[in-house]
Design a protein around this nucleic acid. Sequence first.
DNA 1: TCATCTAGGTGCAATATACACATAGCGACA
DNA 2: TGTCGCTATGTGTATATTGCACCTAGATGA
Lengths: 154, 154
Amino acid sequence: MEKEQTKSTGRRGAANGGHEEPMQPRLTGDLLTSSLLAFLRRWNAYGYQLVQELANAGLPKFDSTTVYRTLRQLERAGLVSSFWDTSESGPARRMYSLTKAGEAFLDLWLDLFGRYQKILHSALDSLDNSDRKPKNGTAASGERQRSRKRGRDA
Amino acid sequence: MEKEQTKSTGRRGAANGGHEEPMQPRLTGDLLTSSLLAFLRRWNAYGYQLVQELANAGLPKFDSTTVYRTLRQLERAGLVSSFWDTSESGPARRMYSLTKAGEAFLDLWLDLFGRYQKILHSALDSLDNSDRKPKNGTAASGERQRSRKRGRDA
DNA sequence: TCATCTAGGTGCAATATACACATAGCGACA
DNA sequence: TGTCGCTATGTGTATATTGCACCTAGATGA
């Protein structure tokens, strides 16, 4: 159990001393899970196909093994079901389809997602309203003072 | 929320046998990161405050330590900066503010997020159009899969 | 036969997270 | 005065998740 935390070969590229490249966005975890479920709501699919669909959707590159493992995990949780499809030539495919529980979960996620969206929109609104209106001057970008909202009076 | 999550097992409650509870949505990783940055785009804030704002936003409960550690990580990556605020009574607060790099990263994320959004909308559209596939697990409407006429078939 | 594409997978190191718990300032209050 | 509770930030650790290297295997074509 070595706890070497000084490795600099990490995923997020954010620990090699001083200043690094600014931490690319990823698409993993909940985002990947819900994306997969969303795809499977429309049609059944197998892993390799989903990897490609995700890539076609303009999302950042990610590892295919993560997709495969996520699908198996979803199946263990009962959100999708699968069977081996050997009807086509070539390697057998594990076809996945969404279960009732998977649809319910996706709905749950969609609901949560709406709330998350509001947070991001707040950030955008703040640009539209006060922050970014330097039509004839670039002053705002440098000396932007945010309203100090403190925990006490909120 | 009376969720009664089994404390013994891990986070996602999906590893104790055959079939378990259906895996609650979470808000972690990129979602948490971008939410924090979005908040900080509007005003400076400290960790405890952000924990509460997130909770008020209707997002699922999550651990405050995750927020604190995420903020420190963001700072190491240069996306936020912090200073100790001792101007108020009570424990000192570590005030965070978004850096230029943090704004750029948030914009990046917003862009990625738009593409992700399309995927989820596709799932919703499939419901609206009542063009739902038969949920049999059988690739009944097999053509619709991907029009994947591979070599032998073409 | 070999290279290449498809399709799914394992093993392992590194990272991320949840839970328990620690530290510390301050106000209330018995 | 002691200590309880709230605020505020953090550490330790066990487990979960992830990315990378690599593997198995069918089909295809040079």
